[in-house]
Design a protein around this nucleic acid. Sequence first.
DNA 1: AATGAATGAGATTTCATTCAT
DNA 2: TATGAATGAAATCTCATTCAT
Lengths: 199, 199, 199, 199
Amino acid sequence: MSGGTAVRGEGRERILAAATDLFARQGYEATGTRQIAEAAQVTKGALYHWFDSKQHLLICIYRDLLAEQTGRLASIAAGDAPVGRRLHDAVFDLVEHVAEHFEPLTVWARSTHLLDGEPAEAIRADRRRYHQMFRGLLAEGQEAGAVRRDVSASVMAHGFLGTVNNVHTWFGADGPLTHRQVGRQLAVLFLDGLRPPKR
Amino acid sequence: MSGGTAVRGEGRERILAAATDLFARQGYEATGTRQIAEAAQVTKGALYHWFDSKQHLLICIYRDLLAEQTGRLASIAAGDAPVGRRLHDAVFDLVEHVAEHFEPLTVWARSTHLLDGEPAEAIRADRRRYHQMFRGLLAEGQEAGAVRRDVSASVMAHGFLGTVNNVHTWFGADGPLTHRQVGRQLAVLFLDGLRPPKR
Amino acid sequence: MSGGTAVRGEGRERILAAATDLFARQGYEATGTRQIAEAAQVTKGALYHWFDSKQHLLICIYRDLLAEQTGRLASIAAGDAPVGRRLHDAVFDLVEHVAEHFEPLTVWARSTHLLDGEPAEAIRADRRRYHQMFRGLLAEGQEAGAVRRDVSASVMAHGFLGTVNNVHTWFGADGPLTHRQVGRQLAVLFLDGLRPPKR
Amino acid sequence: MSGGTAVRGEGRERILAAATDLFARQGYEATGTRQIAEAAQVTKGALYHWFDSKQHLLICIYRDLLAEQTGRLASIAAGDAPVGRRLHDAVFDLVEHVAEHFEPLTVWARSTHLLDGEPAEAIRADRRRYHQMFRGLLAEGQEAGAVRRDVSASVMAHGFLGTVNNVHTWFGADGPLTHRQVGRQLAVLFLDGLRPPKR
DNA sequence: AATGAATGAGATTTCATTCAT
DNA sequence: TATGAATGAAATCTCATTCAT
C-alpha cells in the first residue's frame, strides 16, 4: 500500500506486538525492556522514543481494547429490545470479544495491580465506568423483574466480569473446547443463574 | 541475657506472618527480602536459614491453605447425603474458607504465574487435584440428574473456582457487603445456574 | 562540560586493564566487581554494559593472548626450516611470549578451573588446539629422528607447556633471575631432554 | 575390630575424606562448608568442632602428605649411593608418590594461593624446605659433574617440581597412559635434560 | 562430642531509565 | 527518528563462622 517509504509507526507497532506477546507468555514483571526491544528488532532507545515507560506500554495495550468493549456495550445497552434480551446480547458479545483478544486481556488482568501513577488511574476509571454500565443493565433487569433481586447487581456484575477476565488462568488446561465454546457455556451458566428463584 | 533474643523457634513463624502481610499489601514482587526480614525482626541470613528462596516463602504460605481446602472438600464429597446436597455444602464451605483466608489467597492468585521450578510445579499439581475433585462432584451431579448436562463439568468447575479465587480483584470496590455475604451471593448465583434447564 | 566525562570508548579498555591488574595481584575470587569498577573509574552498571559477567571478563583477558600465541606458533610450525630448528624456535618464542605477558597468564592459570558455561568451554577448546599444534611439531620431530621416541609426544608437550604455564607459582621465590633468563634455562633444559638417547 | 562403640575420630576422618573429594572435583572456592558437612553426613557444627576453619581443612589435607614426601626424600638423599643414582631414585620416588596421592595434591596445587594466616605460612615454610632439599641434591650433582652447570639448580628444581605438581591440569586429557606411566616418562625426560651438554 | 539456629557483611547481577548526539 | 553508552539503586542470595545448649 504505502510502497517503498517506511510506514509511519512501523516501529511502534512492532514494539506493541512484541510486548503483548512477551507479557502474555512470561508475565509483565518477568519481561525486560531489553527483551522487548530485541524481539521488536529495535533499540532500547527507540522503545523509549515511542513510549514513556514500561507501564505506558501495558496501558497502551489495554486502552484500545477497553474502548472497543465499552462502545459495544453502550450500543447494546441503548437498544430498543427488552432488557432481558439486551442483557443476553451483552453477555454473548462480551465473551465473543474476550475470545478474540485473549492474549492482551490476559496481560492486563495479571498485571494491572502493579501499575500506579496518573495514566494508570485514568484507565482504571474507564474500566470502572464499563463495570457500571454492565451493572446498570442488571439493575434495569431487576426493576423489570427479569433478574433476581436477592443478589446484588454489583456482585452479579463483578462475578461474571471477573470470571470472564480470568479465563486465562485455566483455559486450555483440559478439554478440547475452543475459546468461543467455553465462552458460550459460561454465558448460559451465568444467564440461567440470574433468573428469579421459583418462589 | 534477657530481652534481647527472641523466643526460640518463633523466627520461622514471624517470617511467614510478615511475608503474608507484606505480599498481600504490596504484592509479591514489590516486596523485598530485606523488608520481610525487617518486619519479622530477623536478619536476612535467618530468613534464608528457614526458607530456600523468596518463591519458597510464597509456596509455604499457600501450601497449608490448599491442604486444608482439599481436606474439607474430600470429607464433604465422601459424605452420605445426596449429591445435590453435597454440592451445595461444598460450595458454601469453599466461600467460607476463602472469606476466612482472604489475604494469603489473594497473594497466591496474583503471583502464582511468577513461580517456576519443581516445588512450584508440585503445588500446582496439588491444586489441579483439588479442581478434579470439585469437577468430579459436578459430574456425579450430572449423572444423577441434579446438574445440567448442556455445560461441561470442567467449565462449571473452572468458572466457579475462578470466580471465587478472583474476588480479590474487586472486593471492597463498592458496596458495604462483607466477605461472607459476597461469598454467599456468589454461591446461590452459581448453584441456581447449575440447575437443569426447564425443557 | 569539560573534564568530568571520560573519553568516549575508553571505558571498556579501562575496565579490562583494571581487572587484569587486580586479578593478578589479589586473585580472581578475591576481587569484587565493585572493586574493578572503582579502579576503572566506572560504575558497576557500565561494567555490565560491556561484559556479561565476571567470568566473561576473565575470558576476554585470556582470549587475545591465546590468539596471539597460537598465531605465532602456527607461523613458526609452517616454516621451511628443519623440524629441529622449528621446534627450537617455537620453544624460545613461547618462553618469550610468556615472559612478556606474565601477569594475565598467571591469572588465567590460577582461575581457569572456576569457569564454566559455553564461552569457557570454547576457549578451552582453543587452548586444546594450541596444544595439538605443539604436539604435532614434536611428533614431526619424532618421525624425522630429531626427537626421542621412547616418550610420548603428548607427555612431552604437556610437560613443557605445563611447566611454562606454572612458572608463576614459584618465580621470584628465590634468585635474581629475570623472567627471560628463567624462560631460556627452562627451554634448554627441555630441548636437551628431547634428544634421542645415546643407544 | 572396635565392635559396637563409635570409633574415635570417625567423624573427623569422614569430613577429611569428603573435603578432599569435593575440593578435587569442584575446587576449594566452589565448595561450601555446608556441602562438605552434608557429604560427610555430619552437621556444620560438628565440622567446626573438629576443624578451626575451611582453610584448616585444606592444610590438614596437605600436611601429612608433605611430611611423608619429605621423609622419603630425606632418606634417599642421605644414602650412600653416588649422587647421580640418588637423584634418579628421588625423581622416581616422587612421581610414584604423586601418582598415589593424585587428588589431594591437585587440591593443594590449585588453592594454596588462597590461604593466609600463620598455619598456612608454616606449611609453606615446610614446603620450601622440601624444595631446598631437592635443590641441594641437584647442586651436589653439579659439583660432582653429574648435572649440568649452565642451568641454575633452583630453576631445575622448580621446573621439575612444578611440572609434577601440575600434572592434574592435563592428566587424562588424552592418551591411555596410567598415572605411573606418565610419571616415569616425565622422569626420564627430566633426567636426560639434566645431563651436562656435550661440549 | 555435637547441635542447629542465627549472623552480617558482601557477592554478583538486573533493570528501567536518561541523555548527548 | 533513533542510537547506545552509562547510570545507580536495589534485588536475591551465599557463606564462613559463632555460640548457647
